[in-house]
């Protein structure tokens, strides 16, 4: 399990001891970036195909994962489209 402090350290972020709101906002932003990173989802779709092509996963596994990833991609796109204009999520 990732401890919040470790996560922040890994991102080279020093949280002020009592800046709870700041920390929560930062964690929310990190979570959103992780969850809605379109490039990362697209990469997973390509990797899934790659693993199928080299015979490491079965067609059934490939199709199931592909379906899940495409749904994730759609949700991410929808989320990005509905973001308020003053919020920007950059792809990492």
């Amino acid at each position: 399990m990732i401890i919040i402090d470790d996560l922040l350290k890994s991102l080279k972020v020093l949280a002020k001891p009592f800046d709870v709101i700041g920390t929560i906002e930062l964690l929310r932003d990190i979570a959103l970036k992780e969850k809605y990173n379109l490039k990362a989802i697209n990469n997973k779709i390509k990797e899934n195909r790659l693993l199928f092509e080299i015979g490491e996963i079965t067609e059934k596994e490939y199709n199931e994962k592909r379906k899940a990833l495409l749904e994730e991609l759609e949700k991410a796109k929808e989320f990005m489209e509905n973001l308020p204009k003053d919020i920007e999520i950059r792809e990492m």
């Binding site: 697209n42 990469n43 390509k46 990797e47 790659l50 693993l51």
Partner: peptide
């Protein structure tokens, strides 16, 4: 090309 996987 794109380096889309750590396996590549």
């Amino acid at each position: 090309g794109d380096n889309f996987s750590s396996r590549l």
